[in-house]
Design a protein around this nucleic acid. Structure first.
Lengths: 114, 114
DNA sequence: AAAATACTTAAATTTTCACTTGACTATCCA
DNA sequence: TGGATAGTCAAGTGAAAATTTAAGTATTTT
């Protein structure tokens, strides 16, 4: 599995970037939920909730399955791992940023920025 | 330091949810950069770049400092740790989701969803 | 001192988003 | 069977967001 392109990662972050959707993800992380159980605590209409859920589904954050007249939503942990991987990539960089800072404090030779 | 409220975390994700800003964060993670060095590879006007940078600054993802006529942008690793912390919180939950799945496979007593 | 560089600011425009409304379908329960 | 429940779909609306434009300031550089 190859790392998603920047645009795809941005869509993932954007999906988490709405308070309603973030709350939904948190709720779904605790276990499977129906659409109305996601909508109710957020005072969202069902129609609005469905639209958020579609976005979360498209970005791979959750997967749904219809059982009778109820649609069950489950977390797709894979997507959150993508976020983890991205952080890991950055961590290397920002650690070396700390290293450079440490260098500055010991030997006064700043690396010239672009 | 207390965990940011849901709304604040959503704003953080939203800041990363724009392709231009995500690219900027990746670039800044590699070391300090000027505003134009951030704008150029993205084919953004300076004015547009400045506005993105302001958003990244407000959400705490970076900090800037003017040196002469150049404004230098640096990563603020603290903000990315907030994302890490959020993932850690969810990980517990989604691991126990896996546990429940394992339970299902061994003993056929599904936990009823809401 | 003059020209070029590197932003800054505000206002106008375009585009995208979240949400609503209203009508409709499928399932469950009494 | 009939009514309530759970969700679906397609427009339409309003507000927020991203980008452009245009004019201005501060700092080099020559």
């Amino acid at each position: 599995m190859t790392a998603p392109a920047l645009a795809a990662r941005a869509r993932l972050f954007a999906a988490l970037g709405d308070p309603a959707r973030l709350a939904m993800v948190e709720r779904v992380a605790a276990g499977p939920v129906s659409v109305s159980a996601l909508a109710r605590p957020l005072s969202l209409s069902l129609a609005a909730a469905v639209q958020h859920i579609q976005i979360l589904e498209r970005t791979g954050l959750l997967r749904t399955e219809k059982q009778g007249r109820v649609r069950l939503c489950r977390l797709e942990p894979q997507a959150l791992r993508t976020v983890e991987d991205w952080l890991t990539e950055r961590r290397t960089a920002w650690n070396s940023a700390f290293d450079r800072l440490a260098d500055l404090l010991t030997q006064p030779e700043p690396s010239r920025p672009e």
